[in-house]
Amino acid sequence: MQQVEGIGLGLRQPLARELFAADLPALRWLEIHPENYLGRGGQYAHLLARARERWPLLTHGLTQGFGSLTPYDPGALAALASFVRELGSPWHSDHLCVASVDGVYLHDLLPVPFTARAIAHIVARVRVLSDALGVPIAVEPISYYAMPPGAPASYAFDEADKLSEILERADARLLLDVNNVYVNARNHGFDARAFIDRLPIARVVQLHVAGHQVRADGFRIDTHAEPVCEEVYALFEYTLRKLGRPVPVLLERDDRFPPFAELAAEVERLDRIYRAALPETHAERAGESLGA
């Protein structure tokens, strides 16, 4: 299995020219959204081909949503399986959310209730996807702005606890988005570190770090369109030290792109935190560069 670790970026068309021209040793891999590349020619096919030559790639889906009520399309699954296999992604990830209902796609990620029936449904969908793709699935809990009706006041920690059950029953991995945790914690009034402490950390295979928008009323929106804030950097370091092992870490920037130098600076800052938190990884990499 391909070893992917360290800091990565999403392959986004507005960044592409500067990305391929940059000398950025801290950048170790790229994330690909299959929905943006499958069945698509022209510049997107070219971008993907060039990216494959230079970096390991991890696939991250946007539309399957493990709480969704739309049956998987066999043809679409086969195409996705072929795509994931061709890129050599060691796992595929998608979200713990409702993304579609009876064939209607919401084009957003909405929270799920954690009832026993819902959990059974989620587990089944994860398993079907894993079987179809032939690689493990990493499940990403989302940022949410409201809770499903009837959800307990302890919805957040309910999610953390139920996540363990879901991942165990589905034999799945965890993609932990640190910014999602922070946004949820600030919006819904719980302690972010306490939430992370309750997660099945042993199942984490990947981290996301991103920026968010702070509205005038203090409510936070997970936009992926702002720089990472200091609190999220701190939460990232906390998570990494708790994890204690190398993982791929995505700097997730999807909109309002800054000059590439600013993005590169964020990548490098994340890399410094990463190497400080995981000194053994740094020593191994130094050994690699010396040809040891």
């Binding site: 009520l69 409702v98 209902v101 919401l106 799920v112 009832t115 449904h121």
Partner: peptide
């Protein structure tokens, strides 16, 4: 609220 009822209530929410 169970997943099915909740999820179907999202449709008129998102596309009215």
């Amino acid at each position: 609220m169970e997943l099915e009822e909740y999820a179907r209530s999202l449709l008129p929410l998102c596309f009215p």
